[in-house]
Nucleic acid binder design. Structure first.
Lengths: 217, 217
DNA sequence: CGCTGTGTGTGATAAAAGTCACGGTTTTAT
DNA sequence: ATAAAACCGTGACTTTTATCACACACAGCG
């Protein structure tokens, strides 16, 4: 069992490794007042419609953010990785709003929970928190705009290529372990369409296909 | 020619009418340091790729925000009306970033320009500005999510109905003065498709069509 | 009045995407 | 080892959306 000092040390370690740009005083107060929460791969960090009780800073693992449709469909928007925070949790937590998105861990994930009561003071007192929040808003907003580009202007073939490159960049590997069905779900398409487009990409030498694997070349 | 005092009075009037929730001290400093800029209908308040020099608060008129595609296509996202601010101008201005969107006045429009140098201090010193910024981020973010819903999950028929209802709400009228071509441009579709869908809506009694007009019933 | 530009209606056709059906292969479970 | 499940390939078909072609209506104007 971890005692209070160990917990603080652990939080400090997390902050040092992924939020090293936070000023010392900010790290100290966070170490005092944050909670740590662990999720196993597949868990939902946040459900659509749920109220925010705290802002979440990701320190380990990986999280996918989805927009949910009426009939259980899940449209993938972007990843959160260590060093990121959920933009909505930063702004909604401060205003007691419901989540408009669903977040699911795709690896075992650890997050620091910053109580909403702290948010206003952190924003006012710590410049590095303020800049972090601003940068978080900006980068998530831009990712949403990129998503809109894709669905508004591009065909499924281009969206698929963008998706694969995104996976490659995020997961830092050319060999993706993923099924055609999972891709279809993320893009809100159907398995057959994705299979056929992948085949075409293979014929053009852009990928090699195997069961559960796609190798980008 | 307006002298300094007149200008301040004018800004104060604008703030009182559309930003009445700003605390008195904030209004005072804004009246001292803001500029006023007028745009005629059709002007671009902000071009894609342009650097922000100031945050913009809309006090008169109406503005449409677009995401631009490669080949000159313009995808409509949402409106700004008096009392709104461009979310990106708030966050990007603070960080000297380029605009990712294009904003065009659709009525003669007046905006208050808040110099970027002021942004950090306003955020820290005035709680009402802080809440205004947060609410701006949140509501624009949600509008983007709604846009994503539409393009990701819905067909052109539903998107068209959503578009028309949105116009109705924003422009406060059941009688829209708009051509099928304009709608097609905003939705990144084609004129014929929109015409046919509108015809179907007319047959179902949802609208009445005329040259340059669509009446919602 | 007739001319012209713009807005709209509509058929034919094509391309993109989604659906259905089915067969084959590999993995997993019992 | 055998069955069940998951994964992938593919043809046939439907639906949706885009494109092309052209006709018509109407407003503004000399």
């Amino acid at each position: 069992m971890m005692n209070g000092t160990d917990l603080k040390d652990r939080i400090s370690d997390y902050l040092d490794s992924h939020f090293s740009h936070f000023e010392p005083g900010l790290k100290k107060v966070l170490a005092e007042q944050c909670l740590i929460r662990s999720f196993t791969s597949g868990d939902q960090l946040m459900k659509t419609g749920q109220y925010f009780k705290s802002a979440m800073l990701i320190v380990e693992g990986r999280v996918k953010l989805y927009r949910e449709g009426d009939d259980g469909k899940e449209f993938f928007m972007y990843y959160l990785e260590p060093g990121n925070a959920c933009a909505l949790s930063l702004v909604c937590a401060a205003r007691q709003e419901k989540s408009e998105v669903m977040a699911r861990a795709v690896e075992n994930t650890t997050a620091l929970l910053v109580p909403i009561a702290m948010m206003d003071d952190l924003m006012r007192q710590y410049r590095s928190w303020y800049y972090f929040a601003l940068e978080t808003y900006r980068s998530r907003f831009e990712e949403l705009l990129e998503v809109i580009d894709n669905v508004a202007f591009k065909g499924m073939d281009e969206r698929l290529e963008f998706y694969l490159k995104n996976q490659q960049r995020q997961l830092q590997t050319d060999e993706l372990s993923i099924t055609h069905q999972q891709i279809a779900d993320d893009l809100n398409s159907s398995r057959e369409v994705i299979s056929r487009l992948l085949k075409k990409m293979e014929q053009r030498g852009k990928v090699r296909l195997g069961r559960n694997t796609i190798v980008l070349t």
